[in-house]
């Protein structure tokens, strides 16, 4: 279990993040989502030990980790790039940590474990190939294998799918999620992609402007963002004085009170949507409608009352 308490980091007296406290339970995958520059990558690096916290503490399974150097932490970070050594084969890359790193094993033992792990990540047939011969997704799987062989108590993933194309990314994140569950790994997953955050995490943390804005089950955060910042990062809908109105409650209605401009149409999951800009709120929202709208025209929106359900 990872516990962060009042973590703060400054660079040249400029705060990157501050007052960050949260917990990741053992065996759970937490997603940390936020726009670029919100401090999430730096936070991840401080957890890995690659950067020091300016203040605050960090505990792993009750042990204080705040000033433990990275090579001594039972934590492994997976980077955006797979960072496989180009001069080593897949097997040799996977063995690297067991040979020189945190968990050194005898030659026989490490070879056995590496073979097993390669089988788990479905790369056995590639073990004698070089990284350049692998696809991006395969490289990340090898990289994951290399990290997990160190049996970290916490696995950190820093947007590991961002350099892959959309199709591959989709496939791989499903696979990784299942794999982490199956192995019972405690993981903290950083992304700027909200879809990915919701999909990967049992627990969702939303960061913006150096602050942890909200945390909770993904669905709760999605449907009930506590402020505009969170709504902007993760939710679909409008945030106005009265609170959050989910996109599911918005409908195009000539009688409506909200004026919006049609930006463009988009198609997903078998439906047609329109992206609309509500100038009075300076927000955009995507709504579904059967009507055909013309780009650049104004429409009115009204809010559907949703019956309370219990």
């Amino acid at each position: 279990m990872l516990t962060i308490h009042q973590a703060e980091k400054q660079f040249d007296q400029l705060p990157v993040f501050r007052g960050v406290s949260f917990t990741v339970k053992a065996g759970e995958t937490a997603s940390l989502v936020g726009p670029s520059g919100c401090g999430k990558t730096t936070l991840l690096r401080t957890i890995a030990g690659l950067e020091r916290l300016s203040s605050g503490t960090m505990q792993l399974h009750g042990r204080d980790m705040t000033s433990v150097p990275p090579e001594k932490r039972p934590v492994v970070l997976l980077f955006q790039d797979a960072l496989l050594f180009p001069h080593l084969t897949v097997l040799e890359n996977v063995l690297y940590g067991l040979k020189y790193g945190k968990r050194r094993l005898s030659r026989k033992k490490r070879n056995e474990e590496a073979e097993t792990m390669l089988a788990k990540v479905e790369m056995t047939g590639w073990k004698d190939h070089y990284p350049a011969q692998l696809s991006g997704g395969q490289q990340q799987r090898v990289s994951l294998a290399r990290a997990l062989l160190l049996q970290p108590e916490l696995l950190l993933l820093d947007e590991p799918f961002s350099s892959l194309d959309a199709h591959l990314r989709q496939q791989l994140r499903l696979w990784v999620r299942r794999f982490l569950k199956q192995e019972g790994v405690t993981a903290l997953f950083v992304t700027h992609d909200r879809e990915e955050a919701v999909m990967m995490g049992d627990h969702l943390l939303v960061m913006k402007d150096g602050l942890l804005q909200q945390e909770g089950a993904p669905e709760d955060v999605y449907t009930a963002p506590v402020n505009e910042a969170v709504a902007d990062v993760i939710s679909d809908g409008l945030y106005c004085e009265e609170g959050f109105i989910g996109a599911d409650r918005l409908q195009v209605d000539p009688e409506g009170e909200l004026e919006a401009v049609v930006e463009h149409a988009l198609y997903a999951y078998g439906w047609r949507f329109y992206r609309l800009t509500v100038h009075t709120l300076s927000q955009t929202v995507v709504v579904h409608t059967e009507e055909e709208l013309t780009e650049g025209t104004s429409v009115k929106l009204s809010v559907k009352e949703v019956p309370e359900h219990d």
């Binding site: 090579e71 001594k72 945190k102």
Partner: peptide, 26 residues
Amino acid sequence: APGWRRLGDTLGAPRITLFVTGLLPM
């Protein structure tokens, strides 16, 4: 890429080891 040093740190390989076994061959 500068990421290699962080990779070495997170895998727990001493800097000099990473240098000799990783960076120099590259």
